[in-house]
Simulated assay, not measured.
Amino acid sequence: MRVAVVSESFLPTVSGVTTSVCKVLDYLARAGHDAMVIAPAGAPSSYAGFAVHTVPAIAYRQFPVGLPSLTVQRLLSDFRPDVLHAASPFLLGAQGIAAANRLDVPSVAIFQTDVAGYASRNHLGQATAWAWRYVKWVHDGADLNLVPSSASMTDLQRVGVRRLARWTRGVDLVGYHPNRKSDPAVAALRARVAPHGEVIVGYVGRIAPEKQVERFRALRGVPGIRLVLVGEGPSEPLVRKALEGMPVTWLGRLSGDELATAYASFDIFVHAGTEETFGQTIQEAHAAGLPVVAPASGGPIDLVDHGENGYLFTPDNERDLKRCVLRLVDDPALRRRMGEAGRRGVLGRSWENVCDTLFGYYEQAIDARAAVRMMTAVPLSLQR
């Protein structure tokens, strides 16, 4: 199969969109398929043996945003894909879907970024309604729209987006594993950040407004804990100010073995943002055998079974966030039990399994487009 991937985010930018696109490309390469990528400027010229083509971009909150370009349709026409994969389509992805339709190429759009949610959080009023109309317009152009969570499904159904299906995300079950807790590197990190045996409350992700990391201030004054934050982003000055005087270690952006070591050093994982369409770092924490505290909002609702593998706190209620964390801080046996439950819950979500499902959706979109072609080719008198 020939797959054209149009992604709003790609390397060197680190994001959930980038990670999932790279995992899909790795899968296609292993399976012997052909692919190409269209991404914002700054991306490498190739990945997994596939060509990466770039379009002009502007910077927005440290992210390159790809701009519509006349080269998109030419690239798709030259490549002649069997299907277009639009990753978190916005400006560039919308053009990719439109070009695919003009070329009669079926498209699968992956809903990953809650643009309308960002507009709402920033109190943009009418812009929120406009954002949802734009999301609907973009996704209505695709043959199939894949959403990561029940909350996203509800949101898109509410605004009238059609042709919806669920597609979750995979997780590295080998790199993130409870057994890593016995690694010397993990012991060294714990000795450095929690020299007196403090309970480590960790976070992994961008330090950005939608992640609401400043809510960790709710844990001010909790005895015997150490906060460890992994990531970087535009909200770092604000978060540093909000957490000033608290026992915090900033590890910056990590990847690979260093990131796996950080997860393994945590005792509890906390995610405070209420706008996650999925929550990939929650899955990674579960794979590492950690209990998770997250808001009862968006993607975490599907990932955290309240009282079994973690706790869901009332959104925007920092007092409830603190209560949930305190239960785990005070009960090591509960942490272990919930961590084991979290690990069991993700065992079927390897990237290989998840990408097998995605490939099935590609075939579904191709078949649906072929059926439409067949119907339009049959004279009306024979359709009756």
Rank of each mutant, 00 (worst) to 15 (best):
G279D: 10
Y203Q: 10
F266P: 11
A151Q: 06
T154R: 10
K181R: 15
V159I: 15
W167M: 15
L146H: 00
L146R: 01
L290G: 15
Y203W: 08
L156F: 13
A242L: 05
L243I: 05
G279Y: 07
T277R: 00
P148S: 14
V161C: 08
R190Q: 10
K181F: 01
T261R: 11
G245W: 03
V159G: 01
T249P: 00
V201P: 03
A260H: 03
I282L: 11
G256D: 08
D155P: 00
T274S: 09
D183G: 02
T274K: 09
V147T: 12
L189M: 09
R190M: 12
E284Y: 03
A185W: 02
E198Y: 03
T154C: 02
R169H: 10
A185S: 14
V186H: 07
A288M: 01
R169V: 01
V193W: 04
A194W: 01
V201Y: 06
P184E: 14
T168Q: 07
G175C: 08
L173S: 10
E284R: 07
V230R: 09
P234W: 04
W250H: 14
R240L: 09
G245L: 07
R169W: 02
D257W: 02
L290K: 13
Y203R: 08
A194Y: 02
G224I: 07
G205R: 09
A288G: 06
F216R: 04
D155M: 07
E275G: 10
A264L: 01
G256F: 06
R169E: 04
Q157K: 13
M246K: 05
R180V: 12
G289F: 02
D267L: 06
E284I: 01
A187P: 00
V159K: 00
H286F: 08
A188P: 05
I268D: 11
G175W: 02
V147S: 07
L259Q: 03
D172Q: 10
A208D: 12
V239K: 03
L156M: 11
E210R: 09
A264G: 05
S182W: 05
S255V: 05
Q280F: 00
G231A: 13
L189D: 09
G202A: 09
L227N: 11
D183W: 05
W167E: 13
L229N: 06
R206P: 00
K211D: 08
L259W: 00
V171F: 02
W250S: 14
G245A: 09
P209Q: 15
F266N: 13
I225M: 05
